[in-house]
Amino acid sequence: MIALDQVTVHAGTFSLARVSFEIPTGSHTALMGRTGSGKTTLLEAICGLRPVSAGRIFVDGSDVTLAPPGQRGLGFVPQDGALFEHLTVRQHLSFALELRRWPLDRICQRVAELSLWLQLDTILDRRPHGLSGGESQRVALGRALSFQPSVLCLDEPLSALDDETRSDICQVLADIRARTGITLLHITHNRSEAERLADRILVLTDGHIESRSLRT
């Protein structure tokens, strides 16, 4: 569950004031709005990458407003995937687990599990250079999911993909939700993508959030 209570956040001269909404556990919510409406700013504030000047942010009932990004239990996938060019796919999947000092056998087990699930098992020893757009996004998703976060925040993860790959990744996202019951918050400009994946759409207009339910 994610809840924002009267959150105000600034990004240069732009600001969002007193934004409140709640995303139920296990739901898939699409955050939409015009370019420059503040969707990414809001997502960064939720992930702890941008300080909020007022209000509170809750993840699974805990107040994480002042918590560092790594302690919020959120997975984050940016638009371009932001893969680390010096690491192999395997190292991407184990990155967060090594930070958490998981035992080696558990890390290997988790990497094997994720790689089979996300069809990364044949490219585990490759580096990001030369991976296709779909492969890169699957690696970014695997890296974000590796430490079993309760929430996954996606910033337009499908915008740079061709139609076929986009459809594949949509299926992967639906599969992730079905398997893990994770809460998804997903920025998109594509209404059909939102309607296919999300239960609910949050529309950000002039700093105000409007909620529209897609499932009954």
């Binding site: 702890g48 790594g70 959120l74 984050f76 371009d80 932001a82």
Partner: peptide, 23 residues
């Protein structure tokens, strides 16, 4: 270098200094 990589590293559990050294 895009700051996005460091930001992703932070969400994965890195401290600022770990993100600097590792990413």
């Amino acid at each position: 270098l895009s700051p996005r990589h460091e930001q992703v590293a932070l969400t994965l559990g890195c401290s600022r200094s770990q993100a600097f050294w590792r990413v």
